[in-house]
């Protein structure tokens, strides 16, 4: 039995003292998850490199594949202001995407950042409410988008009577990105050195002034990184929007009208099955957006890293 539990825990070696650490390290009995037999350096090197290559190859394949399929369908008519079944324009979807993203951020960013301020600057240690807030935040971040979609449909669309509308979609998205914003804001605020606050208090500023003049400006880049992640999540969202914002393919006149984002537009094209090529073209635009968003967030993450170092 000792054999089997040889490496079950690296800390509690004293309970299994029959084998010396050296014996344990070199005794190839096969308890390794992915490998049954002899583990040579070379063999391990090969599987490790191969897996990494597979991961990157898959990414490259997806991107190249989508571009090859979509680029031939990109033409000016795809960007006309109104959609019809001839031009299959993605412009209205692009405008709706920008609109819903902006509105969701307008709702979720203040909420998330203020909540993070409460958790980090105001709440006392061991506060029961704080534990509950953290727990619900974790729960929210694990809920799949289709469940958000169902909730949005039941609450915003039906219960509040907003119908399939930009507004219902926006609120659903706001709840969905709230935990993301809250967590990144919290991390960014915690990373602000206490000496900043002490300096501010020392100069006679109150808590509120310290928060708005010192803490939040210093945490701005970190918060921005979270916001950009949230933008990425919204841009890629489909399941939460189909039954909240609906699938109307035109530019909405007001927030009470239905509209589709780029992702929903793609799904609609695929389920209609008539304009798959234009669907791939939309996928190309969406991919470019996502690549830009990722580049932004990487750039900001680097700036956060070079700011007041967390490890300093």
């Amino acid at each position: 039995m000792i054999h089997k539990h040889r490496f079950s825990s690296s800390h509690t070696t004293e309970t299994q003292s029959v084998l010396s650490p050296r014996q344990r390290l070199f005794n190839d009995g096969g308890s390794l998850a992915f490998h049954g037999h002899k583990l040579s350096e070379k063999g391990l090197a090969i599987v490790t490199w191969t897996s990494a290559i597979v991961t990157i190859a898959v990414l490259a394949y997806i991107i190249i594949f989508i571009f090859l399929k979509g680029v031939p369908y990109i033409k000016p008519s795809l960007f006309s202001y109104t959609y019809n079944s001839d031009n299959v324009s993605l412009m209205p979807a692009l405008i709706s995407t920008v609109m819903m993203t902006t509105l969701s951020l307008v709702i979720a960013v203040p909420l998330g950042v203020f909540a993070a301020v409460f958790l980090t600057e105001y709440a006392k240690r061991g506060n029961r409410a704080v534990a509950l807030i953290r727990m619900t935040m974790e729960t929210l971040s694990g809920i799949p988008s289709i469940v958000y979609g169902l909730f949005g449909m039941l609450f915003f669309v039906t219960f509040l009577g907003w119908g399939f509308s930009v507004l219902a979609g926006t609120f659903t998205l706001s709840i969905m990105i709230l935990p993301l914003i809250m967590r990144s804001a919290e991390e960014a605020i915690i990373a602000v050195p206490d000496t900043y606050r002490e300096g501010s208090f020392g100069l006679g500023a109150g808590r509120l002034r310290t928060v708005f003049r010192i803490v939040l400006p210093s945490a701005a880049t970190g918060i921005l990184a979270g916001v950009i992640l949230a933008v990425g999540r919204i841009v890629g969202e489909t399941a939460a929007l189909i039954y909240t914002a609906g699938t109307v393919a035109q530019v909405p006149d007001s927030v009470y009208e239905s509209a589709r984002t780029l992702s929903v537009h793609m799904y609609a094209l695929s389920s209609e099955g008539l304009h798959i090529g234009e669907g791939y073209a939309t996928a190309v635009i969406l991919l470019i957006l996502v690549i830009l968003i990722n580049a932004c967030s990487a750039w900001i993450a680097r700036r956060v890293g070079t700011g007041f170092g967390r490890n300093a």
Partner: peptide
């Protein structure tokens, strides 16, 4: 990170 950012509809296509 990019693999994580690709929307699920794009994966679907």
């Amino acid at each position: 990170d990019l693999l994580a950012g690709i929307p699920s509809v794009v994966y679907g296509f």
